[in-house]
């Protein structure tokens, strides 16, 4: 058995909101799970805070880590559909 354990990921999208479950991922331990969650689930500036939980333990990223964790995706404009100029007369895009 070489599979990494499954973690559930919770993201707080904005200050003042609850953390919301956004999905799952695999990681070999809590620290890797937090980093994997950043890479997998916050590629579009989605979160300001991440929790990962394996069974009954919850681990949260600290607010201090906000900069290196989230800043890098700030300029990835090509990820956003509105970045592509499609003329208005092309339907269904």
């Amino acid at each position: 058995m070489t599979e990494w354990p499954l973690y559930e990921v919770f993201v707080r999208g904005k200050r003042g909101l609850n953390h919301v479950h956004v999905g799952s991922l695999h990681a070999s331990d809590d620290q890797m799970a937090i980093r994997n969650a950043r890479d997998v689930y916050t590629r579009r500036n989605e979160g300001v805070s991440i929790w990962v939980v394996r069974s009954d333990a919850i681990t949260a990223s600290s607010p201090d880590e906000k900069d290196p964790l989230f800043a890098p995706s700030g300029d990835k404009v090509y990820r956003h559909p509105t970045f592509y100029e499609i003329p208005d007369n092309v339907p269904h895009m």
Partner: peptide, 15 residues
């Protein structure tokens, strides 16, 4: 009982 995470939010493998 005893779980802080609602069932809705933690599907499958945590159970």
């Amino acid at each position: 009982p005893g779980k802080t995470v609602p069932e809705e939010a933690a599907p499958g493998k945590t159970v």
